[in-house]
Design a protein around this nucleic acid. Sequence first.
DNA 1: TAGATTGTTAATCGATTAACAATC
DNA 2: TAGATTGTTAATCGATTAACAATC
Lengths: 212, 212
Amino acid sequence: MRKSNKVSMAVIRRLPKYYRYLGELMENEVKRISSQQLSQLTGFTASQIRQDLNNFGGFGQQGYGYNVEDLHNQLGKILGLNRVYNTVIIGAGNLGHAIANYRSFEEEGFKVKAIFDVEPEVIGIEIRGIKVRDVKELEDFIKENQIDIGIICTPKDVSQEIADKLVNSGVKGIWNFAPKDLKVPDDVVVENVHLNESLFTLSYMLKERINR
Amino acid sequence: MRKSNKVSMAVIRRLPKYYRYLGELMENEVKRISSQQLSQLTGFTASQIRQDLNNFGGFGQQGYGYNVEDLHNQLGKILGLNRVYNTVIIGAGNLGHAIANYRSFEEEGFKVKAIFDVEPEVIGIEIRGIKVRDVKELEDFIKENQIDIGIICTPKDVSQEIADKLVNSGVKGIWNFAPKDLKVPDDVVVENVHLNESLFTLSYMLKERINR
DNA sequence: TAGATTGTTAATCGATTAACAATC
DNA sequence: TAGATTGTTAATCGATTAACAATC
């Protein structure tokens, strides 16, 4: 957190992976690790790992390496995992269900406060104890419940409309599963999970392998 | 497809986005588009778009631009979307359900032939007409049904074991939703969807915005 | 033909890797 | 102290952008 200048997206997307492996090492009661050993686990070069970490401070010790638990904690803080986020899911279809049921997100501090949908059949039911509400209530609910993150699991044709409502009610982060590039103001962050793009990339690579 | 040398992953991951926007343009009956206009839609620079496309051939025409339908077709072929892929889903939990129900994958040629699970309660049920089978039958089923892609929606602790079975039965492509880096031979392709890493990246960016 | 826009080469920028002095 | 391994600077590599001749 020391360095003031912008850390590149390439670095940031590697951090969760470091965090995950360090968590696994903790479970296995490993106490220390060198950049060389982390390199073997993650597949990134030792040099890159040291460069990445030094964007945020010197967490290691010469001749020793890194303390696993300490580094895990530091990365958790850097990733913003040392607090609770209130979230809402919009779209109670299969994907909305899947995410609402994903226990490990809750463990990391991402709390699902409500799920919204338009279909009368699902409004009122509960998913893992979380009530499905009418999407008409979305904006009021966000304002009254300090929601940080909106998770869009709707069809693509309504995703922008939902994003607008989220933004207007003060949500600063959107996790978007709709295959659409949302337009939002500069102070709002969108993280996309474009499953179709991922699948098409797989299909491309599959084709490449076969043609060789 | 002309150029023989390796196209970078950065380029490949942009192709599905071009493909998507071209599809939308077709729906709106737009016939031609310039790299400049595509740049406005996608957010990539016109120069980059021309560079990207020219990895695979000259699809445009000077003074005119690109024919939307033609370019869409070409990209479809490049991405390997001009054929059908047989897939199986392993794990009939919420995520497995969500993917099995995702109609648009089927439309692009990704056919789900079976779903596998270990739980006696779900074995035998049908999801969108697709039978849930005992995971014990996985390897035989793959061999008998020319399965191209295995979609792993299991908990992380069994994901490697499942990947091994897929590989041993001849699957060449794995779409992995488990938060784990799978070890597979060189001739097998893995495309990961690591939702936790995506969420943590969002949380990082959210923190950055707030701290400014 | 004149105007537009590609395809492609060259220049720039940024990210990764290598090297090594600092130091635990 | 000697050995190990970091933090950091410099060198390399690759990806993006700019520029423009080719050409429809």
